[in-house]
Lab assay of single mutants.
Amino acid sequence: MAEAPPRRLGLGPPPGDAPRAELVALTAVQSEQGEAGGGGSPRRLGLLGSPLPPGAPLPGPGSGSGSACGQRSSAAHKRYRRLQNWVYNVLERPRGWAFVYHVFIFLLVFSCLVLSVLSTIQEHQELANECLLILEFVMIVVFGLEYIVRVWSAGCCCRYRGWQGRFRFARKPFCVIDFIVFVASVAVIAAGTQGNIFATSALRSMRFLQILRMVRMDRRGGTWKLLGSVVYAHSKELITAWYIGFLVLIFASFLVYLAEKDANSDFSSYADSLWWGTITLTTIGYGDKTPHTWLGRVLAAGFALLGISFFALPAGILGSGFALKVQEQHRQKHFEKRRMPAANLIQAAWRLYSTDMSRAYLTATWYYYDSILPSFRELALLFEHVQRARNGGLRPLEVRRAPVPDGAPSRYPPVATCHRPGSTSFCPGESSRMGIKDRIRMGSSQRRTGPSKQHLAPPTMPTSPSSEQVGEATSPTKVQKSWSFNDRTRFRASLRLKPRTSAEDAPSEEVA
């Protein structure tokens, strides 16, 4: 009796068929016929556990003709996506030579605008209408194809895939403007070719909807975003200037109206006075309405000098805001240009540092100066060695804690006790272990408590650290204090090793 083939788990290929790579489910599931010992083939499952149809090819690079078809379809799909992405970037994010197409579109729109203006002049109306009709045909074809291509290429973005995504893309403001202008152009052409009475009025009214094509030149909205950011950044200043200017306008108009309503027919109503105030304070000055009385002229002159300053403030605020924003954008561009080279330089330096163990090129690091100058660790070890030599091999803490019996001779020589300023008595072995921070803190506390006492003391002649007598400086308080830590004499004296002298005989010792 033939044995059933062993159940295979995992992703390994079956024996005897090495080139074939078959994806098997996580659990080997066989058909009921196979479990019962029949000759049925096992049921194939996909990666998600769903059964595959009987005629479906197995996924994998070596699955025969199905694999070749899959490779061809995958390559075609990649080319399709690449083309779609390229078209989308050309239309929505132009760079380099892609601006040539947008310059061509701008020339078409500008020519249409010029011809629309010439069509309103009686001398050039006939020729402009003929040229404009031909140009409209060209623009309908160009913009119609462009609109379709834009909607198709938007599928390269995830949020615009599918018919719902394309509809979302078509609802964008600039796409809506394109659609309105396209419909208006078709209506103008249809009305112009019919030759009816309505054609002339339709051409004159709907052609100027094509002015909206100038708005579509900035599809990404960079200028509007820049203007919005400047207004938002200086909103408080703008609101303040406009508010005060509006108050000056209504008060000036009302007072001039009261002064001129009886003697001047131009100011017969408050609305006429508001019109005069707006034209005057905005420095336009049509001259259609002028005050005639001396009181009205004085009020107009005073409020004009006051109001023009507030009406001119928004222009200066926006101008300075634009300058600052442009400078910030230039700085951001320079930062973006330098970020990648800086990151590459840091990575290269780290690779060199991690692979080169000698690091002989590091001549400006802490390790280099640590090898030249005595390190703080060596100074600490030197302090501890000196203290243990004086205390008979014991550390200062051990000397303080060691009990001394009554009447027993002390094995240590008597030492002079010292007192730290602002604290109780402490171990004499710690007097010379006072660090730089303690010395600086002690000097600052003395300056806070009594700076007036220092200038009363007789001035001391500054001497070099080499000429100081070591026996005289029994305490860190003898170090000359200065008002600034930048004094080199104080810094050098604080680094010197001060020996400890006994109370009975204080021989001067120098520590090399």
Score class of each variant (00 low, 15 high):
317 I>V: 13
156 C>F: 10
36 A>E: 08
118 L>Q: 07
123 E>K: 03
259 A>T: 03
285 G>A: 00
71 Q>L: 06
47 L>H: 08
306 L>P: 01
132 L>F: 15
146 E>K: 01
261 K>R: 02
25 A>T: 03
253 S>T: 04
121 I>V: 07
182 F>V: 03
141 V>L: 11
344 N>D: 05
174 F>V: 15
291 P>S: 01
54 P>T: 11
163 W>L: 09
315 A>D: 01
292 H>Y: 06
225 K>Q: 08
110 F>V: 05
314 P>L: 01
305 L>I: 04
26 L>I: 11
29 V>E: 13
130 E>Q: 12
248 V>M: 07
103 V>D: 00
102 H>Y: 15
83 L>V: 10
154 A>G: 02
50 S>N: 06
167 F>C: 10
220 R>S: 11
38 G>R: 06
171 R>G: 05
266 D>E: 03
282 T>I: 00
176 V>G: 03
322 F>I: 00
96 G>D: 15
147 Y>F: 13
29 V>L: 07
29 V>M: 05
295 L>M: 05
11 L>Q: 04
118 L>M: 12
154 A>T: 02
279 I>T: 02
335 F>C: 01
130 E>G: 10
235 S>R: 03
98 A>G: 04
273 S>W: 00
336 E>K: 01
22 E>A: 05
84 Q>E: 07
14 P>L: 13
298 V>D: 00
46 G>S: 06
50 S>I: 11
228 G>V: 13
97 W>R: 14
240 T>A: 03
78 K>R: 11
316 G>D: 01
78 K>Q: 11
121 I>N: 08
265 S>Y: 04
179 F>V: 08
96 G>S: 13
256 V>F: 00
192 G>R: 10
129 N>D: 11
344 N>K: 07
184 A>D: 05
142 V>D: 01
57 P>A: 15
39 G>C: 06
326 V>I: 15
94 P>S: 03
216 R>H: 08
35 E>D: 12
251 F>C: 09
95 R>H: 14
327 Q>R: 15
198 F>I: 03
211 I>T: 04
316 G>V: 01
130 E>D: 06
228 G>C: 10
36 A>S: 14
79 R>L: 09
62 G>A: 13
190 A>G: 07
125 Q>K: 05
165 G>A: 02
233 A>S: 05
74 S>A: 10
169 F>S: 00
201 S>P: 07
33 Q>P: 04
21 A>P: 14
279 I>N: 00
270 Y>S: 00
168 R>S: 12
98 A>V: 05
43 R>C: 04
31 S>G: 15
211 I>N: 03
74 S>T: 08
145 L>F: 07
45 L>I: 10
125 Q>R: 11
315 A>V: 02
166 R>L: 15
4 A>V: 11
188 V>A: 06
123 E>A: 03
118 L>R: 05
255 L>Q: 00
342 A>T: 01
186 V>M: 08
81 R>C: 09
58 L>P: 15
135 L>V: 05
10 G>R: 09
147 Y>C: 05
29 V>A: 05
282 T>K: 00
189 I>T: 07
78 K>T: 12
271 A>D: 00
87 V>G: 10
199 A>D: 02
149 V>D: 00
15 P>R: 09
274 L>R: 00
138 V>E: 01
315 A>P: 09
307 G>R: 00
328 E>G: 01
1 M>T: 04
255 L>M: 06
106 F>Y: 08
178 D>Y: 06
57 P>R: 15
139 M>I: 08
264 N>Y: 00
342 A>S: 02
312 A>D: 00
187 A>T: 05
93 R>Q: 15
305 L>F: 11
338 R>L: 01
193 T>N: 04
333 K>N: 02
46 G>D: 04
219 R>C: 15
303 F>C: 06
300 A>D: 00
272 D>V: 00
170 A>S: 11
184 A>G: 10
44 R>P: 04
225 K>N: 13
134 I>S: 04
323 A>P: 01
176 V>F: 01
256 V>L: 05
331 R>L: 00
190 A>S: 03
278 T>K: 01
197 I>S: 06
157 C>W: 13
63 S>F: 11
60 G>V: 04
92 E>D: 05
59 P>S: 08
210 Q>H: 09
181 V>A: 06
25 A>G: 14
140 I>V: 08
49 G>C: 08
20 R>C: 15
105 I>V: 12
123 E>V: 11
234 H>R: 00
4 A>G: 05
207 R>L: 00
57 P>H: 15
184 A>T: 05
301 A>G: 06
308 I>N: 03
146 E>A: 00
31 S>T: 04
16 G>E: 07
292 H>L: 06
242 W>L: 15
241 A>V: 01
177 I>S: 14
160 Y>C: 00
196 N>T: 05
197 I>V: 07
113 L>Q: 12
87 V>F: 12
12 G>A: 03
195 G>R: 04
317 I>M: 01
257 Y>F: 05
106 F>L: 09
202 A>P: 03
250 I>M: 04
207 R>P: 01
180 I>L: 06
50 S>G: 06
273 S>L: 01
30 Q>L: 06
255 L>P: 01
266 D>V: 00
117 V>L: 07
153 S>C: 09
238 L>V: 02
215 V>M: 14
21 A>V: 06
221 G>C: 09
333 K>R: 07
189 I>S: 05
214 M>I: 12
83 L>Q: 03
16 G>W: 05
94 P>L: 00
294 W>S: 14
36 A>G: 09
64 G>R: 01
340 M>R: 10
240 T>I: 03
187 A>V: 09
108 L>V: 07
209 L>V: 08
131 C>Y: 11
180 I>M: 07
3 E>V: 08
155 G>V: 00
233 A>E: 03
181 V>M: 09
296 G>C: 00
256 V>I: 00
319 G>D: 02
217 M>L: 13
321 G>D: 00
290 T>A: 02
298 V>A: 09
141 V>A: 10
312 A>T: 03
109 V>A: 02
275 W>L: 01
49 G>R: 09
6 P>A: 12
210 Q>R: 02
116 S>C: 05
309 S>P: 13
101 Y>S: 01
75 A>G: 13
85 N>K: 10
287 G>R: 01
91 L>P: 00
106 F>S: 07
171 R>T: 13
269 S>A: 01
169 F>Y: 09
197 I>T: 07
235 S>T: 02
221 G>A: 03
312 A>V: 00
279 I>S: 01
258 L>M: 10
161 R>P: 02
260 E>Q: 01
250 I>N: 00
126 E>G: 04
166 R>C: 11
296 G>S: 00
118 L>P: 02
339 R>S: 02
56 A>T: 11
218 D>G: 04
96 G>A: 12
11 L>M: 15
9 L>P: 04
288 D>H: 00
300 A>T: 08
127 L>V: 04
145 L>M: 05
324 L>M: 12
187 A>P: 09
256 V>D: 00
216 R>C: 04
196 N>Y: 04
211 I>V: 10
317 I>L: 02
61 P>A: 05
198 F>Y: 04
196 N>K: 05
334 H>D: 01
276 W>L: 00
288 D>G: 00
282 T>R: 00
124 H>P: 12
240 T>P: 03
104 F>Y: 05
336 E>D: 00
163 W>S: 02
130 E>A: 11
230 V>L: 00
270 Y>N: 00
338 R>W: 00
179 F>C: 05
259 A>G: 01
73 S>F: 12
252 A>G: 12
73 S>P: 11
158 C>G: 08
159 R>S: 15
42 P>A: 04
135 L>W: 09
204 R>P: 07
107 L>V: 05
142 V>F: 13
161 R>L: 04
218 D>E: 15
262 D>H: 04
129 N>H: 08
88 Y>S: 02
